[in-house]
Design a protein around this nucleic acid. Structure first.
Lengths: 229, 229
DNA sequence: CCGATATGAATGAAAG
DNA sequence: CTTTCATTCATATCGG
């Protein structure tokens, strides 16, 4: 079947007419689709990562009210801003600390599993505590007293060129916090993003984003690529 | 201007003809575009997060210190004659962790030497790893899950008189491990994603993704939404 | 508000 | 396998 030139012309006019009057929906050409395609490709790939994040975070984090010690923490105090962190940690009361220190000073080394139970139950009378807390406390206490000792020994050896030591310290100061900032930044950002959309699944997120700023984003993006002119 | 019904019919047929024969490019309707729009909206929002991540990370981290898989080889600390311990311990990528957890959950006890080799080689595809790492991981995993079990049992046994302590114990067990896993997981995931595409800018990433699997991703995504039929 | 520091917690690795 | 050590991370607290 062949079409006369005049017929094509007429059909084209008709098509444009339909579009103008909403009788036919506006269309995108393959070229445009191709551009969108590229965008989606990239977005999809990147987004998969955060979706994965979301999943793993959801799996490991339940939002049932957390309580530890005497602190109640409403975990989902997620404001739109930042600082949504909900993790709480045990803090020994002065009394508990005193007892722990005493036991530690007694030099009975590391309390065994059984000993820990004893200590924990005793301390429990003076505040919320778990055996793990006791265990951790001794671990840290030992490790840190040892580190202090090392540090003091290193300090006593300051007889030599401290310029060298200075360099070491300087570099240490530089490298370590850098890494920490770095990681902190990541964690904070992602955490923030996650908690901002905490209870929402990815699907709900769709609606949320859409209603808030999504369409503007989309428009900008599309225009940038000359789509949807 | 009005169109006769017959003319519309003819024009429609012509349009379809053009499309069939490649004389006119295929098109997307507004409805379809709307769907794509939603996708892009979400993708864009999410992706912005990772792009920001990328920027902040680039700003804070120079790649003079290379990273082999998950092992940090800090050239700075290495160059110092002093005994600064560079980071040297293995850190499983989220993906590796997932696999390990899966295997562990399968309850197939301790993997034999052979099994470990298998696992290690599989995990090696997702990052630096050694058989020893796998071995240690299982050792620790087992030991710690056992410890936790003991602790929780002890807690419930000790907690007979707890009318005021309530279900604190139970929640204690849940909240504590969840916290750090959670954050670590985030950092690891993002870090992993970032380093996997370390040298590439986001723009280069585009090409990378496109050429590898991008179009397939797009196709799946589009089909899922009934687009591009 | 920010940075520095103290400390609770998590975890890979190694010792016993 | 069990226990311990070493390192790192995250948070709380405080002084500027």
């Amino acid at each position: 079947m062949e079409w006369e030139n005049q017929e094509m012309q007429q059909a084209e006019e008709y098509l444009q007419y339909q579009i103008r009057n909403g009788l036919r929906e506006k269309v995108m050409t393959d070229v445009q689709v191709e551009e969108l395609r590229k965008q989606i490709v990239v977005y999809a790939a990147i987004s998969e990562q955060l979706v994965e994040l979301h999943k793993s975070m959801s799996a490991h984090h339940d939002f049932t009210g957390m309580r530890l010690g005497n602190l109640y923490c409403d975990s989902v105090t997620a404001s739109i801003g930042h600082k949504i962190t909900a993790r709480q940690r045990w803090t020994p009361t002065p009394f508990q600390l005193q007892i722990l220190e005493n036991i530690y000073e007694q030099g009975t080394g590391t309390p065994g599993k059984q000993k820990i139970k004893e200590i924990a139950s005793e301390l429990a009378q003076h505040g919320q505590i778990s055996e793990t807390n006791v265990y951790n406390w001794f671990q840290n206490r030992r490790a840190r007293s040892k580190r202090k000792l090392q540090a003091s020994m290193a300090a006593s050896a300051t007889g030599e060129a401290e310029s060298r030591t200075e360099d070491v310290v300087a570099k240490d100061k530089k490298t370590k916090p850098a890494g920490s900032d770095f990681a902190d930044n990541i964690a904070n950002r992602v955490e923030s993003f996650y908690f901002q959309n905490s209870n929402a699944g990815i699907d709900q997120l769709i609606g949320k984003v859409e209603s808030s700023r999504g369409y503007d984003s989309y428009t900008n993006l599309a225009e940038q690529y000359g789509l949807l002119g």
